[in-house]
Nucleic acid binder design. Structure first.
Lengths: 239, 239
DNA sequence: ATGATTTGTATATTGATCTAGACCATTATG
DNA sequence: CATAATGGTCTAGATCAATATACAAATCAT
């Protein structure tokens, strides 16, 4: 099975075999890979060689390793369409996965220049800042820091904490519908905060999305800067 | 262009680039590859690394190296259909290449057991043995030792030497048509003789074909053991 | 013939890959 | 809590890959 001296390293050949088994459906997302010992046995190589193969799969975002537990096949990337009507929970449910949102913290503050401009406020106008994390099937997909104008949306943190849903939080403040008015997409390298909140290694790619939501009257109600784990999400724009 | 530390050796990547250029038509058969020095420059690697890449292409039969001269793209393998009516020159001409045959030597002898059986003779019946080499565009394709019954085909060596054509030599002996009655295909590793006559390295693969031709009346007229350079020929049987 | 060009060979050095073995840290399980 | 299972880290040595030089041998052009 393994060809030595043909210009392809052993660890890469092993990685390609496992990758093919994932792509071919032999290894379903969420299932545990054979243990390092088992792979060592199967391929007839040293454990370190298997580990290097697994490391390359981790770097590609195909598997996730947990010390003491095992190596698991990552879920297929979530397809995240960005349109004027984007609802995280609907997107996740639409792909047969279980959405969840969690409030990380909140505070009241004066709007920064950037936020004031986005929400059509004056600098230092009061806003409530909300930090939240979002999950699909318990796996972190994104985290965000968002700003809502005060006093109109004073209730948002409490309702969001209780429901995990921005849509519900806005509804509690009398906004029954909203749409996305602006989206900017960038990319960055995960820092310590991204690493902790998305449960990824520092250095992995992150999609950074600045968005502005407006109510049916076109009044800005929410500015958000979201950090998506790029290994777990594929944005679709238009199409 | 070259990715180091990704599990694929540098020499293999270089070989794949050159192979793609050959397959893509950028390097026509017969043309000379850039010199080792030029390739060293182009890929930014050591000369030995280029040499290993070239060696892998030689091993695949894609190029041929001549010390002091250069490295040349091999011709595409000649497709050699084996049927009841097989004529070397017609096959070669049919592929827009220039056929040639050369007499290497001849002698009269008594038929060996194998030849006697093939030609329907008794052992030690007189035959003329002919050794010949066959070329397409000047490149050696095969060499063969053949046996013809005597006295019927005494003229064969002289005519073959003059024309380079077995068909013409047989015609001179009154055989206007012939067909292949038996073919056995085997493979071997080139020995010193193969190496010299086919201009290939010892150890390269060789197709060994034993065939018997018969005249229109079904009388055996020629036994042949041909050695084909496997890198330059693809046999097609049936189809 | 002569010299320049081009491939062939040899040796040595450095770094990457693979193997081997030992021990630690985390997780799962009874 | 104790134990086993599993991945994480470290050291050391063997082999392979790539570099760096030097020189030999064959070919080609003049």
């Amino acid at each position: 099975m393994l060809a030595r001296g043909r210009g392809v390293t052993v660890w890469r050949q092993i990685a390609e075999v496992i990758e093919a088994e994932i792509a071919g459906g032999g290894l379903v997302p969420g299932t545990r890979l054979p243990t390092e010992a088992a792979l060592t046995e199967r391929f007839g190589v040293n454990r370190h060689t298997v580990r290097q193969a697994v490391k390359s799969l981790v770097d590609k975002g195909l598997v996730r390793v947990t010390q003491g537990s095992g190596t698991y096949v990552e879920a297929k990337p979530l397809t995240y369409p960005i349109s004027t009507r984007t609802r995280f929970s609907e997107i996740v449910v639409g792909q047969a996965r279980d959405p969840a949102g969690r409030l990380l913290g909140h505070s009241e503050a004066g709007a920064s220049l950037e936020i004031a401009e986005a929400l059509d406020l004056s600098p230092e106008d009061p806003v409530v800042m909300v930090e939240s994390a979002h999950f699909a099937d318990g796996v972190p997909i994104s985290w965000a820091v968002t700003a809502f104008p005060l006093p109109r949306f004073a209730e948002v943190p409490a309702v969001y904490a209780a429901t995990g849903s921005i849509t519900a939080a806005l509804a509690a403040c009398g906004v029954s519908d909203y749409r996305r008015a602006s989206t900017k997409v960038g990319a960055a390298i995960a820092d310590a905060t991204d690493s902790a909140r998305l449960e990824i290694a520092e250095g992995r790619p992150v999609l950074v999305i600045d968005s502005i939501n407006v109510d049916p009257d076109g009044v800005p109600i929410q500015w958000a800067r979201s950090h998506f784990c790029a290994d777990r999400v594929r944005l679709t724009v238009g199409g």
